[in-house]
Amino acid sequence: MRSCPLCVLCVIAAALCAPAALAGPPAVIDLLPAGTARAGPAGEPEHFVGKKLFDYMDGGAEVFLAYGFEDLAVRQYRCKCPGGQELSVAIYTMGGPVDAYGIWSINARGKPVVGLGGPAVLARNMLSFFKGRYYVRVICQKPSEKADEVMRGLAQATAARIEGQSELPAELGLLPAGAVDGSARYLPNAECARTLWFDGEGDVLLSRGGKAFSATYTAGDSDLQCTRAVYPSAADALAACRALAAKLGLEPAGDAGACSAAGKTPDDAFAALRAEGSVLRWAGGAGDAQTAAAWLSKIE
């Protein structure tokens, strides 16, 4: 057999590169647990990349993509118990840790679960958490206390395979205290705000590169929404403020370099908003003008 010098060089180069490749982040499919004491695998893992997410979930994929979705690994498991109900573990690789928080925050109302290395909730038949840039959903077909325990086991087995810890974004601390549990959201673009505002307010708010945190508060009989958006520049914040005021039917006040507005909005509620520097603060859905102004002042 003749040896090819170029081939030999290639083999040596590949051997030298291999350790670096092995040291990289694990493929998401490798993060799926092999099983737990109470649940074993029931099928092979599946992998969906980019827009192939539509093949997995159809409607709803848009919002995952808006949070920087890269790929998904999902696998079915079967409970080692009478009836043997099926469960699934789905691990979504998102754009970054704050995006993983963002997608998790859409459906974060439920019973808090500890010990998973990041914020987690259990609601009905789903346990969800985020850790690093991964968003994880463990789902059972029929909720029960026993199923909850099996889901916890699968969640713990999954969390153990994902390195690091996760915490809620610090920016949430700039919103007023006392938000309705599980109502806080991270909104990096308009697509992520589709289920929060239905009249296109999100398109206006999150134009010009704005990224926002928002949460719901109970104020009297009203569900009030406090939002803090940050823009690349003060000029962007100013323009967004004016556009949002116009969208809400409010007359912006202030000179050329400032923007604030307050008053009754088309939904018969009251709102107040103000741009300062590169930040736009907005309190909407209040029962009266004073309440809107008071909550606006609570947004840092």
């Binding site: 979930m57 159809d58 409607g59 709803g60 859409i106 459906n107 009905r124 789903m126 789902i139 289920t195």
Partner: peptide
């Protein structure tokens, strides 16, 4: 009422 079309969501 939430997380449709596939859920799970609030019923």
């Amino acid at each position: 009422a939430t997380d449709g079309p596939a859920g799970p969501g609030e019923l």
